[in-house]
């Protein structure tokens, strides 16, 4: 059964006033348990709005959202339980840190869930390990950490709630390439180890292509497609219409193919491209 099911959801800001603005319209999709979904779209395409709808921070003006088959707005008073199940890491989450120590900050979410001290302790330590935070950092003030470490603390704060679905909104924005790669691999490792559902929002095709099982493409508040990376990138032309590009390596392979070099163009990462080209050169040398 689908973990999350969206049925014709739409959101209009300031309905009935002169500031009326449609942020999202008629979006439907299903996300299966344990999937890694990437959501992509350029600025203002409605991707951030979409994920805030999924964990009940915004209420859709149209349509319904189901979590494990249950409408999340069925009991508006219990929306907090939905937020515990659908964890959300915002853009630049390091600006939400507030407590005296890293340990206390990570335990804020679990505490709100009303867990026991032992359980909280276990979860904080596990979350810190997952996000690659060293043990000695736990007793430091979050304000003394570096930018990258702060972001890990903030992500750990949501991971510690052990959500069924983890949503990350542009988690790699503003990180250096090394930090970005490390963070993406950790998110993928977390997903593989826990078998839970992860939704990653990004505008970088490279990032999404590397980790996602399926990609949801958004444009002007509408769903354009939801498919595997290979299928999505094979529709390169359609993507370009929405202002998005296929990853650079994929583009290079496509161009090579156009030049008459028989390479596979379903290539998503540099490693794959490297192997493919080596293979081709090897076969050429033999022949």
């Amino acid at each position: 059964m689908a973990v999350i099911k969206a049925e014709n959801i739409g959101l209009v800001y300031g309905a009935g006033t002169s500031f009326e603005k449609t942020a999202l319209s008629e979006v439907s999709f299903e996300i299966e348990k344990g999937e890694f979904i990437g959501i992509i779209g350029h600025t203002g395409s409605g991707k951030s709005t979409l994920v805030q709808l999924l964990n009940g921070l915004l209420k859709p003006t149209d349509g319904r959202i189901y979590l494990n088959g249950k409408d999340i707005w069925e009991e508006p008073k219990k929306i907090r339980n939905v937020r515990f199940k659908v964890g959300m890491v915002f853009q630049y989450p390091e600006y939400q840190l507030f407590d005296e120590t890293v340990y206390k900050d990570i335990s804020y979410g679990p505490k709100n869930m009303g867990l026991s001290e032992d359980e909280i302790d276990e979860r904080v330590k596990k979350a810190a390990e997952f996000t690659g935070l060293k043990k000695e950092l736990l007793d430091k003030s979050p304000f003394d950490l570096s930018g990258g470490e702060k972001r890990r603390v903030a992500i750990a704060g949501v991971v510690a709630m052990n959500p069924e679905v983890l949503i990350l909104d542009e988690p790699t924005a503003g990180l250096d390439p090394l930090g970005r790669d490390a963070l993406l691999s950790q998110i993928r490792d977390y997903h593989d180890a826990n078998k839970n559902t992860v939704i990653l929002v990004s505008h970088s095709m490279e990032d999404i292509a590397r980790v996602a099982d399926r990609i949801l493409v958004m444009d002007h508040g509408k769903k354009i497609m939801l498919d595997t990376p290979k299928n999505v990138f094979s529709k390169g032309r359609e993507l370009e219409k929405t202002g998005l590009r296929v990853p650079q390596v994929t583009k290079i392979m496509m161009l090579l193919k156009e030049k008459g070099i028989p390479v596979n163009q379903d290539i998503l990462t540099i490693e794959q491209a490297f192997n493919e080209i080596i293979n081709y050169l090897g076969s050429k040398a033999e022949g």
């Binding site: 921070l57 937020r83 915002f90 989450p93 600006y95 939400q96 840190l97 507030f98 979410g109 709100n112």
Partner: peptide
């Protein structure tokens, strides 16, 4: 506020003291 709500902050219920305490995670950042 949204970020803390996502972490289960409850700012809409409880007495005055509880509500003021609930604002700390918003005011400090």
């Amino acid at each position: 506020m949204n970020a803390q709500k996502a972490r289960g902050a409850d700012m809409e219920s409880g007495g005055v003291i509880k509500r003021i305490k609930a604002l700390i995670p918003v005011l400090i950042p």
